[in-house]
């Protein structure tokens, strides 16, 4: 039954949601609403599961004296510190004077603005440097297709910025618009069609209980 029950649940819920998409009658809509509510509960529980797993694995590595132990300890301290700060603000555990002066989200906003935002923005900004490096190293007109690709890339890069029109007498943005609307648009529609078939196939197999890789089979 350890295998059969999850498969049965998957099939029933999958068919119910699929039916509600195609059928507007009241009972299917009500069932869909109920399943959506349950799905949100599961998503929220998945967060807790993720946190529990993170703590378990990190503590295991710390107690085993792993090379990354100091970083794991910092991560756990930040995780629980931020959680505690949020709980304190939500439940009013902080001194009233502090809340009056700084607002009831001050600690969380500080953590977000002063730590999280700079770190994430910095990592993302690496892309600008890496794309320049990759452009120098790898963008070669080795073949006809590569040359077409490079030309299209140059048109897009020039068309997206004001200096492109200045250098080309206004043609860059017009060429960009043509390329994006007609050539790219057509290609994207075809790609979406192909990708959707793959997703449809796997979805059908999961809903009908044929695909069981989510059970580690």
């Amino acid at each position: 039954m350890k295998r059969e029950i999850p498969i049965l649940l998957t099939v029933l819920c999958g068919l119910a949601v699929t039916w509600s998409f195609f059928s507007p009658v009241g009972v299917s809509s009500a069932m869909n609403a109920e399943l959506l509510d349950w799905a949100q509960v599961f998503f929220s529980v998945a967060f807790l599961l993720g946190i529990a797993n993170l703590v378990r694995i990190s503590l295991k590595q710390v107690t085993a004296g792993h090379a990354d132990s100091p970083y794991k300890l910092v991560m756990l301290a930040v995780l629980f510190g931020y959680l505690l700060a949020g709980l304190a603000e939500i439940h009013g555990w902080l001194p009233a004077a502090f809340t009056e002066e700084h607002g009831n989200k001050a600690l969380r906003n500080w953590g977000h603005a002063k730590i999280f935002v700079p770190l994430q923005a910095t990592m993302f900004s690496l892309l600008a440097f890496y794309i320049a490096s990759a452009a120098f190293r790898a963008f070669r007109a080795r073949s006809l297709e590569a040359t077409l690709l490079l030309t299209a890339g140059a048109v897009v890069m020039l068309g997206q910025v004001p200096i492109g029109d200045e250098l080309t007498g206004g043609w860059a943005s017009r060429a960009l618009a043509f390329l994006m609307v007609h050539v790219n648009g057509a290609g994207q529609k075809a790609i979406i069609m192909g990708a959707t078939l793959g997703v449809l196939a796997t979805g059908l197999r999961i809903v009908l209980g044929i695909e069981r890789s989510y059970l580690s089979e």
Partner: peptide, 9 residues
């Protein structure tokens, strides 16, 4: 920046 990348290419 785009001009620089084009120049590098």
């Amino acid at each position: 920046a785009h001009i620089l990348i084009l120049a590098l290419i």
